[in-house]
């Protein structure tokens, strides 16, 4: 650390205090620990439905963090859209693809150790850079809220009207696309279904036949 850096951080510490965290900071830290732990369990658990339920905890914790950062409107949007609809959609997807209830031993693929290495390396690099960059920066949470519904609405409809409308077109396109993707063609429906069922059965049979052979190979 260069002397000028030391002087700057000493001055900032004198103003804010490194070792006397405020109540908001302590709350943020505790909720952040809960959020991070829930996210970790959500990506490592072997029970697929539990992963979706831990995701609810992580997303709800993030909504509380938005509230602590005085972004109220974003927090309620987070609760409405993520916890209310995205997780429900994910649970529907898990049920419709006949995800196994209970422990499924093959939830993680074979490259999980490489994935762990990449994730830990990325986390170390990011945390190091971020802590080093923002060591002497404080958010001023006093005064009027930076993200109340009034402020957010005014900003959105004064400066961001065109992207907002483009986003509504994008949502419409996504709606139409999802309908087209999940619709069965009517004419070929019966034959298609029979053939798909046959293919699925064949795949299952091939997999079951293959598995002992693979185990024998190891």
């Amino acid at each position: 650390m260069t002397p000028s850096h030391a002087a700057v951080s000493a001055a900032a510490a004198a103003e804010h205090g490194f070792l006397s965290p405020t109540g908001v900071e302590i709350t943020f830290l505790l909720i952040g620990l809960v959020t991070f732990g829930a996210a970790l369990v959500s990506v490592t658990t072997r029970q697929l439905v539990h992963a979706a339920l831990w995701l609810v905890v992580a997303l709800g914790g993030l909504a509380v963090e938005y509230l602590l950062l005085t972004a109220e409107f974003i927090a309620w949007m987070q609760v409405l859209i993520y916890v209310g609809s995205v997780v429900v959609l994910l649970l529907f997807g898990l049920m419709l693809t006949k995800a196994p209830i209970g422990r499924s031993p093959d939830a993680d693929s074979g490259n999980r150790w490489a994935a762990l290495l990449v994730a830990v390396a990325a986390a170390a690099a990011l945390v190091w850079v971020v802590v080093d960059a923002f060591r002497t920066t404080w958010i001023d949470l006093d005064g009027p809220a930076a993200g109340s519904t009034r402020v957010t609405g005014a900003g959105l409809f004064q400066n961001w009207v065109l992207p907002f409308e483009a986003l509504s077109v994008l949502l419409l396109a996504a709606l139409v696309g999802a309908i087209v993707l999940s619709r069965r063609a009517k004419a070929a429906d019966a034959a298609q279904q029979a053939r798909a069922g046959g293919a699925a059965q064949q795949a299952r049979a091939a997999r079951d036949g293959q598995r002992p052979a693979e185990e024998g190979k190891h």
């Binding site: 804010h16 943020f28 830290l29 990506v43 994935a115 994730a119 945390v127 971020v130 923002f134």
Partner: peptide
């Protein structure tokens, strides 16, 4: 509030998601 708290939390959550994308 110290700006490093939300920045570090978001970096950790991002890397958790990265692990999930690669390993699941």
């Amino acid at each position: 509030m110290h700006l490093a708290y939300p920045a570090v939390l978001s970096a950790l959550l991002f890397c958790t998601g990265l692990y999930g994308v690669l390993a699941r």
